[in-house]
C-alpha cells in the first residue's frame, strides 16, 4: 500500500503546551485511517495543520510525495485534500442546491468570470444534484441549509467536501451530536466513501471507529502512542491504560 499522506515530526506549540508533539503518521492509498484519543489530545489541532488552517512549528506534511506543509487551505484542496468540520460549516442562507453548486464551481474552472450568468451553467447544478443524491438529500435541494435537521446538515457537510473530488478526506467527528438512527446512516455513508477516496477519520464513537477503520492511530497528549489494526489497538496495553478503558475494549 503506497502512502498518500505522510506526516513527519510535526510539532505545534501553544505557549508552553505542545498540542502536537512530534507526530508521525501515514495514510495509505484507499485506506480508512481513524485517529482516536481522549479530549484535549490534540486531534483537531492535528487536523487543522493537515488541512492548512493552522501552521505547524516544525515537521512536514506530504501529499502524494509533494510537500504541502506551507500551502494554503485552498491550494491543498486543489491537490485533493478536503475536510469536514467538527462544527458544521455550511452556507446557511443558501439552498442545498446552491451550497453544492458553489462547491462544485470551486474545482470546475476559474471563478474569475465576471459576465456570463452562472445560473445557466447546467453542469454545475447537475453535479450538485448528483452529490445531493449521494448523501440522500435529493428531496431537500430547495431547502435552505439553516433549516435542515442536524443529521441532514452533517450529511451536507460531507457532500460539500465530496464536491471537491478529494483523494484524501479528513472527517472531523462526523458523528458528533447524531442520534442512533442518523449515526447508522452516517456510518453507512462513510463506508461507501471508501470507494472514492482515502479517509482520515477523527471520531469518539468507538463502535463506529472499530467497525470502519482499517488502521487506527491513538493520539495522547500530542503524541501518537500506537498505530495498528483495530485488533492490535484493542489489545494494546498502553492504549487500554491511557484511553480505552475496559468498557470500550469490550465493545
Amino acid at each position: 500500500m503506497s502512502d498518500l499522506l505522510v506526516i513527519g515530526g510535526l510539532v505545534k506549540r501553544f505557549g508552553g503546551l505542545a498540542a502536537t508533539d512530534g507526530v508521525d503518521l501515514a495514510v495509505g492509498e484507499g485506506e480508512l485511517h481513524a485517529l482516536i484519543g481522549p479530549n484535549g489530545a490534540g486531534k483537531t489541532t492535528l487536523i487543522s495543520q493537515i488541512s492548512g488552517t493552522l501552521a505547524p512549528d516544525a515537521g512536514h506534511i506530504r501529499l502524494q510525495g509533494q510537500d504541502i506543509t506551507r500551502l494554503t487551505m485552498h491550494e491543498r484542496v486543489a491537490r485533493g485534500l478536503a475536510r469536514s468540520f467538527q462544527v458544521t460549516s455550511l452556507f446557511r442562507g443558501f439552498s442545498v442546491r446552491d451550497n453544492l453548486a458553489l462547491a462544485v464551481q470551486a474545482r470546475s474552472g476559474s471563478s474569475f468570470r465576471f459576465f456570463a450568468p452562472a445560473r445557466n451553467e447546467r453542469a454545475l447544478f447537475e453535479e450538485a444534484d448528483r452529490l445531493a443524491q449521494r448523501v440522500d438529500l435529493q428531496d431537500r435541494l430547495d431547502t435552505q441549509a439553516s433549516v435542515l435537521a442536524h443529521g441532514e446538515q452533517r450529511r451536507l457537510e460531507i457532500a460539500l467536501a465530496l464536491a471537491t473530488r478529494p483523494r484524501l478526506l479528513l472527517l472531523d467527528e462526523p458523528l458528533a451530536g447524531l442520534g442512533p438512527e442518523e449515526s447508522a446512516r452516517m456510518v453507512a455513508l462513510i463506508e461507501s466513501l471508501r470507494a472514492d477516496c482515502s479517509l482520515l477519520l477523527v471520531e469518539h464513537d468507538m463502535d463506529a471507529v472499530f467497525r470502519l477503520a482499517g488502521r487506527i492511530s491513538v493520539l495522547v497528549a500530542g503524541k501518537i502512542i500506537a498505530t495498528g489494526t483495530p485488533e492490535q489497538i484493542r489489545n494494546h496495553a498502553e492504549v487500554r491504560r491511557a484511553y480505552l478503558g475496559d468498557e470500550a475494549v469490550g465493545a
Binding site: H74, F91, R92, R107, A161
Partner: peptide
C-alpha cells in the same frame, strides 16, 4: 456567507 467554508472547498478567497 462563510469565508472558511469557501477556502475549504478550494476558493482562493
Amino acid at each position: 456567507e462563510n469565508e472558511i467554508r469557501m477556502e475549504a472547498v478550494g476558493f482562493p478567497v
